[in-house]
Write a protein that binds this DNA or RNA. Structure first.
Length: 203
DNA sequence: ATGACGATTTACT
DNA sequence: GTAAATCGTCATA
C-alpha cells in the first residue's frame, strides 16, 4: 500500500524537507481521474523573511504569496515571466513562510499525457519535467491549485516511496538557480538533487 | 496610474 | 552564448 506523509513530515525546516522530498513521488490526479506522477529529483529550500531570494523576503505578505504563510503541507503555486507556473510545498507551520520549490521530477506515470500537456516541443522524456515550470505544465499545475492542502488533497499530493532520506553521498548540493538578485543569499547551498539523475535540470 | 521585473523556457545566431 | 516571449504583481507616485 502506498503511504502518504502526514502533516509532521512537512512541518520541518525547509532544508530538511527539501532533502527528505528527494526520491519521493509527486502525484497529480486530473479531473478525469488520470494519474500523473514522477519521482522528485531536484528541490530548493526557501528560508522565509530573512532569505532575500524568497518571495517572503523582508516579511513581504501579499495576495500572491499568502499560501506560503500557511501551515506546512500546503501548495504554493505562483505565476511568473508572464507564462510559467512553479510549485512549492510549504514547510514549517503557519506564520513561518518557508517552502521547498520542486525543480525537477523523473516521470513514472502518465508520460503520454504529460507529453500532450507539454506540446510537440518535447522529443525526449528527460525534457518532460526537468525544470520547475516544465513539470507544472506537464502535470497541469496552475494557480488553481495554489493553497491546496497536500496532506488531504486527492488531486495533488506526495507518496512516500522511501522511508530513509537519500544518503548524503548520493545527494548533490549547490546554489539555487535564477536568484542572482539576492546578493549573498544567491550563493548559499540550498539546492539539492539526486546525484547522477539525468532528469535533474542542474548538474 | 504607471513602470520595472521576474524562484523560466525556448529558439536562434 | 544571447535574446525574445509575455503579463501578473508590486512598489512608487
Amino acid at each position: 500500500m502506498t503511504v502518504r506523509p502526514d502533516r509532521s513530515f512537512f512541518q520541518r525546516d525547509p532544508v530538511t524537507l527539501a532533502r527528505a522530498l528527494l526520491g519521493q513521488r509527486l502525484v497529480r490526479v486530473l479531473e478525469d481521474g488520470t494519474r500523473l506522477a514522477g519521482i522528485i529529483v531536484e528541490t530548493e529550500a526557501y528560508l522565509g523573511v530573512e532569505d532575500l531570494a524568497a518571495h517572503t523576503a523582508r516579511g513581504r505578505r501579499t495576495a500572491r504569496n499568502e499560501s506560503m504563510w500557511g501551515d506546512g503541507g500546503h501548495a504554493y503555486v505562483y505565476f511568473t515571466y508572464g507564462m510559467h507556473h512553479c510549485m512549492n510545498i510549504v514547510a514549517q507551520t503557519a506564520g513561518e513562510p518557508t517552502a521547498v520549490l520542486i525543480r525537477a521530477i523523473e516521470p513514472v506515470e502518465g508520460m503520454m499525457r504529460m507529453g500532450e500537456h507539454r506540446g510537440s516541443v518535447v522529443k525526449r522524456e528527460r525534457d518532460l519535467c526537468s525544470g520547475p515550470a516544465k513539470l507544472c505544465q506537464a502535470l497541469r499545475i496552475d494557480r488553481g491549485l495554489d493553497g491546496v492542502d497536500m496532506v488531504m488533497s486527492q488531486e495533488l499530493f506526495v507518496e512516500r516511496v522511501r522511508s530513509r532520506m537519500l544518503a548524503a553521498r548520493l545527494m548533490g548540493i549547490g546554489p539555487r538557480v535564477g536568484v542572482g538578485y539576492a546578493g549573498e543569499w544567491a550563493q548559499k547551498p540550498l539546492r539539492f538533487w539526486v546525484m547522477g539523475s539525468e532528469f535533474a535540470s542542474g548538474k
